[in-house]
Design a binder for these strands. Structure first.
Lengths: 346, 346
DNA sequence: AATAGCACTCTAAATGTTAGAGTGCTAACT
DNA sequence: AGTTAGCACTCTAACATTTAGAGTGCTATT
């Protein structure tokens, strides 16, 4: 019973330290914590608890005579056990709907608005990955002859992505055949996930022979433009610049390290692609990140879906000292909104 | 005669100061300049000339006991009179061709490679504006029925841009009519500049009557999707992060001011759009820029063309202390290359 | 267990000091 | 004349020194 009580207080004090540090970015002294509890606990007592928390590697000392700062472990504990999922305010939800709806007819602006919305609400950088092409479903394809030997393939998916790719056939185009191929593909592939199309068609090819074999082979060829089915995903990244005013980045070399993510988005892509495999909110704190350039940052990600199927991911990134209680519900809420809007669009 | 001689030397000394400052970012002392001339001129003499140059507002003093630094006027004079247009080295040209050709099948990557190429060669940030839609020529349009009342319009231009836009017709689609409209538009508009299409069709509309009037009106309606003919241009911006290692940006607030361009690209767009009106290289130095966030930067821009017609602009941006002698030919060369590649693509 | 008191530690800001880079001026030289 | 050498002077940047105060850890007390 007493034990539980102690633990409870430790939690409260840790919570106070994290909250205060997140708010002010200054190491938190025992006096400051005491005041947070309206002086119901004296600084000396708090100091004792602080020593315990420090032994548990939940907080540290920058130096002897400084206040305490949460460690990565401290944040982890805070995120896992201490914050209850807060909800967004009505105003915040309204802001999101406004931002998203204003631009929802155009795919690019939609992605941009979504990442901007995250960044505005959380005060950290917002990230949105375009729906993964492989996970999108085939809706329609059309081939538009451009000149005597070149064709523009236009692919429409259920996630609202329209991909086009110029295909050089290196021979005269037979319009009738082009038409038959189009008909065939649209009939055959409707609703299929793009990632499966290639193997499906190759399988079909093995079963066929003679005249239909040649036809099918040509159809496959038409889909093989590199940018059509396996185009790399894009990353929309907003609000990173305003992060630069955080004291964490007052050292320009740290700022640069972080901003590099901007130009070299592969690390982000890898991280998000992996997180996409599992359901719901994921939080990566500081050193938990394998990627070195964000080991003083935290990343919050969430998958988003179209018709129950995960198709992409969104997230937020900022210094470990971020308002997890706000960031997590914001990312969560936006993943739902984005899924819905894309569903309507597709 | 003597007068001319003096002026000639002033020029040489200014040139030395600019070159040295561009190279080292340190205020240039009389001794350093003297050494640049292999001590053929003594520091004392140079000091005298420096006083003259300072009176002409071509150089300044950060403080009494510091070396000299070029003013905006100094750079202006340097750019206008002192550097002769250097050519790119073979290696640099090769690098450009390599970067560009690797990605030229895909429009987006082409733009990105072009701006990256500028940034790599000049060591400042590279900027590429997508071809302005209004200045591009109509090549082909296709309407793909998506569901009972919605159609996807796909527009192909001569600059390789493929724009698509979902159109909600709010009534059942008559396939035959859709086909006739497509035929009509493709026949009628081929080669026309997109900026002229709207007014052309409206003019035609006034001449017509009865059945054809209704037909034409519907055709116009089909082209009126907001993102189809008047979609805003995109800005590709590469290398800004590596600029951050310049001493000019060691002050984080200056860095932020500059990076804001990244997220808010309107200023860039305005500047480039204006420069696009005139032919060839334009250089804006420091305070010459109306936009406040780049008043300690210089911008070098150049239009690029398809079939003799200006269609977009590219450029470079960095601190006023940039290697103009390298940046100018690089931007110039890339504008030519980009035009040619786009011509082949379209 | 909780608290008050006190000596101790460490930082950050303020102040002082110094070396050296660079100028401006004057007088001498060509 | 224009050019140069010499020298006193200025200013900064870097380093050392001092000091106030925030915060701790420990011990004695309640």
């Amino acid at each position: 019973m007493k034990q539980v009580d102690i633990k409870e207080r430790r939690k409260k004090i840790l919570c106070a330290i994290v909250d205060s540090y997140v708010d002010t970015a200054m190491p938190v002294g025992s006096r400051a914590v005491s005041q947070r509890f309206r002086c119901t606990i004296s600084p000396a007592t708090i100091r004792n608890v602080m020593v315990d928390l420090e032994e548990m590697d939940l907080i540290t000392h920058p130096h002897t005579s400084a206040g305490r700062v949460p460690t990565d472990n401290g944040y982890r504990f805070y995120v896992d056990c201490l914050i209850e999922p807060k909800h967004l305010t009505k105003e915040e939800e309204a802001l999101i709907t406004r931002l998203i709806n204003k631009k929802c007819e155009d795919f690019e602006s939609l992605m941009q608005s979504a990442s901007k919305a995250i960044s505005m609400i959380t005060n950290v950088a917002g990230i949105v990955l375009t729906p993964r092409l492989k996970r999108s479903a085939f809706k329609h394809i059309e081939f538009i002859p451009v000149d005597s030997s070149r064709v523009l393939a236009v692919l429409i998916t259920n996630s609202g992505i329209v991909k086009s790719s110029l295909i050089d056939l290196e021979e005269e185009i037979d319009k009738a055949e082009l038409f038959r191929i189009t008909e065939f593909l649209n009939q055959e592939l409707g609703g299929m996930f793009l990632g499966e199309i290639r193997s499906y068609l190759t399988r079909r090819l093995l079963e066929q022979r003679d005249s239909f074999y040649a036809f099918l082979k040509k159809a496959i060829l038409m889909l093989s433009a590199p940018s059509l089915l396996r185009k790399e995903d894009r990353v929309y990244f907003e609000g990173a610049v305003s992060l630069m005013s955080y004291p964490e980045f007052k050292d320009i070399s740290k700022a640069r390290l972080f901003l590099r993510l901007f130009e070299e988005k592969k690390d982000i892509l890898d991280l998000f692609n992996e997180d996409m495999e599992t359901e719901g909110i994921k939080v990566h704190i500081g050193k938990e990140n394998t990627c070195k350039s964000i080991q003083e940052c935290s990343v919050v990600t969430c998958n988003y879906k179209i018709r129950q199927r995960t198709i992409g991911a969104i997230g937020a990134i900022g210094p470990t000292r971020m308002e997890y209680g706000k960031v997590i519900p914001a990312v969560n809420y936006l993943s739902e909104v984005l899924g819905k809007v894309l569903e309507d669009l597709g």
